[in-house]
């Protein structure tokens, strides 16, 4: 096996410190673990215990202010895109929480979201990451899903996608021209909900009309997934 170069070793050490510090800034669960078992957290991030002094004291008001500010920004943007979903989740016991999302691997993984409408690639917003994460956590495309939640989440995400389509956008968003549709109940073929790119919401019951939707180029929201985005080159 080839020995890592000095730069690779340096970057590897820095990468682990970067991952830990950023996780501590966002995730309350990691913060709690850090306060009780810092050495275990260091170990989980592949760092030796003598690196603990690189991490600031997370009990200070300064650290808390920065941490709260960062979390609030993400929470606000998600709440703005998913207001009805947020209310629904807040009043449903055992629902996934915002903390669950912000501590999840999906939040930190740019490839778990869509390419940004500005053309800079995936992972530059948190709305699509949240949608795919929540869809998976609450099994929104399964037969026994909460239909009311499904309808709220899909309507709000489709609205967000149409917003992105209606402003100057990355070609990825061209597929949302005309609008998006989804079956109201994953167990049944109809009715189908259609949100047009002019924000008109239709409920379609006619089988012939429903069959025409993909043929005229409309997108099934259940088929929208984070694309297999290639790894981009870096100036290393």
């Amino acid at each position: 096996m080839q020995e890592p170069t000095a730069e690779q070793a340096l970057r590897d050490r820095a990468r682990k410190l970067q991952a830990l510090h950023i996780k501590l800034l966002f995730c309350p669960t990691t913060q709690e673990k850090w306060l009780t078992e810092a050495s275990k957290v260091l170990d989980a991030f592949g760092l030796p215990s003598n690196m603990q002094d690189r991490i600031p004291d997370i009990t200070t008001d300064q650290f808390k202010a920065e941490s709260i500010g960062r979390r609030t920004l993400v929470e606000r943007s998600i709440g703005k895109a998913f207001p009805e979903t947020k209310l629904h989740l807040e009043t449903s016991p055992d629902s996934p929480t915002f903390n669950d999302f912000i501590c999840s691997d999906e939040f930190f993984d740019p490839k778990s979201g869509l390419p940004h409408s500005s053309g800079v690639g995936p992972g530059y917003e948190n709305i699509s990451k949240y949608f795919f994460w929540l869809k998976q956590e609450t099994k929104l495309n399964s037969a026994d899903c909460d239909l009311d939640l499904r309808n709220k989440v899909y309507t709000e995400f489709a609205t967000w996608l149409i917003n992105e389509f209606n402003r100057p956008h990355d070609p990825y968003y061209d597929q949302f021209e005309g609008g998006l549709y989804w079956v109201q109940n994953p167990n049944e073929n109809k009715p189908v909900i259609l949100l047009s790119d002019e924000y008109v919401l239709y409920t379609l019951n006619d089988t012939k009309t429903i069959k025409q939707l993909p043929q005229i180029g409309l997108t099934d929201l259940d088929g929208v997934e984070p694309p297999d985005w290639p790894d981009e080159a870096t100036l290393l």
Partner: peptide, 11 residues
């Protein structure tokens, strides 16, 4: 920093 990955931004 913008995040922990080679691309993207967490805020």
């Amino acid at each position: 920093w913008l995040g922990t990955a080679p691309t993207g931004s967490l805020g």
